[in-house]
Computed example of a mutant assay.
Amino acid sequence: MSEKKTLSPLYSITAGTIAGISECLVFYPLDVTKTLVQLQKGTATKQSTFTVLKDVFKRGVAYKGISSPLAMEGFKRSVKFGATTEFKKFYHKLNPSFFKENSVNVNVASGITSGIIEGFIITPFELVKVRLQDPLTKFKAPKDCLNYIIKKEGYVKLFSTGLEAGALRQSVWNAAYFGSIPWLKSFIVPKSLTKEDPKYHQKMLFSNFIAGTIGGLFASTVNIPFDVVKSRVQGAITEEAKLYYRSNTFVTIFKIAKTEGIKTLFAGWTPKVMRLAPGGGLMFLMFEGMMSFFKKINGIEE
């Protein structure tokens, strides 16, 4: 029996890149809003998400710092989708009975693994982005910020500041997102749907978008404490702040909950969900659509 024909990893990397850049361009202002909300410290009255979002557009900073994440986004999403796709193959071959094709188990395991890799990739980009988005920033462009970090803090800090929290954030998000999608689709896709249905592709597109949106909502909710810590660690400029946030991620989560309340660990949830719920739907829709196209031109049946 011949081995099932599959696409080269290059195709899933390309599809992931296109999906990531599309999501970033559409939803970036909400990322700026999320970071600004998360950087509000203490127990004093804080501005609401919609107040911050309105102010972001009023001050003309809705796309401030986008060159850094845009440069990162294609690479990051190519890893998210490309590496996850390849790890799914790896884990399935490793233990076919436990890691069944497109099962929750294989999706969670591959999502965690690709998330760790993502953490190493995104850290310097995220550090520059957070420093630029800080309302008290003195930097006008990513290059200024990057040069300052290298000169004052060094190359090691550029790649290590927020690395642990960032890797945990990505791993938890990927595990929740990719792990929930096959389960969600088992409920969303009609059991009676077949490829002979004239509206098969439209129904699958709709199902992919809904599953991706719900998966994005779930993933964004469970990983946000790690996101808050990452923003705080990377936004720490003073020596006092750096000392406060130098503990490991879980100790820092406990510190924030104890001094500012558990609610603070979910700071930025609204703009994050406003971005990554529909953003998750858009990404999955774009990725699946591109992969279907690539399979079609390569003569591979889905």
Rank of each mutant, 00 (worst) to 15 (best):
S231C: 14
S78F: 02
S186W: 12
V79K: 03
A176E: 01
S110V: 01
T270E: 10
V26S: 03
L158Q: 05
I300D: 00
T123L: 04
T194M: 07
T238H: 02
E288H: 07
V233H: 03
G82R: 02
L265Y: 07
F250T: 15
K80S: 12
G154F: 08
F87P: 08
D55I: 04
K89H: 13
I13E: 02
A71V: 13
G289H: 02
L205A: 15
L94S: 10
F139K: 00
P278R: 05
A44H: 12
T49D: 06
P124A: 01
K295S: 08
M274F: 04
S180K: 03
K151L: 07
D144Y: 00
A167V: 08
K100R: 13
F98M: 12
F75E: 13
R131H: 07
T264V: 02
R169Q: 15
G119A: 01
K100T: 14
I253H: 03
V273K: 00
K230F: 10
E73S: 15
K255R: 09
A167T: 05
K157R: 07
S68Y: 04
E126A: 10
F206G: 10
V108C: 03
M286P: 06
K140C: 04
K242N: 09
E260F: 06
K76V: 14
T161G: 01
F90W: 12
D197E: 04
L217T: 13
G60A: 11
Q170K: 14
I262P: 09
E196V: 12
I210L: 10
W183R: 08
E3S: 11
K64W: 08
T45Y: 11
I149V: 01
Y148T: 06
L10G: 13
S12Q: 11
S48H: 06
E3K: 14
T17M: 12
L205Y: 12
F284P: 09
N223K: 11
K258T: 15
K89W: 12
D227Y: 10
H92K: 13
A71P: 05
L132W: 00
E240T: 09
F209C: 09
E126V: 08
T113E: 03
P190W: 02
G166R: 02
F287W: 02
L184C: 00
N223A: 15
Y155Q: 05
T123C: 05
K191T: 13
W269H: 14
S12R: 07
F206Y: 13
R131A: 04
I121C: 15
F250N: 08
L282F: 06
S8M: 02
F98A: 09
V172K: 08
E196A: 11
F87D: 11
L158F: 10
L94E: 08
P124T: 01
F57T: 00
I21P: 09
Q47M: 15
L146N: 05
E86R: 09
V106A: 04
F87I: 06
W269I: 15
E3V: 12
K76S: 12
A167Y: 04
T249C: 03
T221H: 12
K195R: 15
I181T: 13
E196P: 11
I188L: 01
F90G: 08
E164G: 06
I122L: 14
F250W: 13
N102W: 02
P135Y: 05
L94Q: 11
G119S: 00
E240Y: 09
Q234A: 03
K34C: 11
Y148H: 13
F293G: 10
N102H: 04
I297M: 03
L53I: 03
T264Y: 07
E73A: 15
S103V: 05
G179L: 00
L25F: 10
M286E: 06
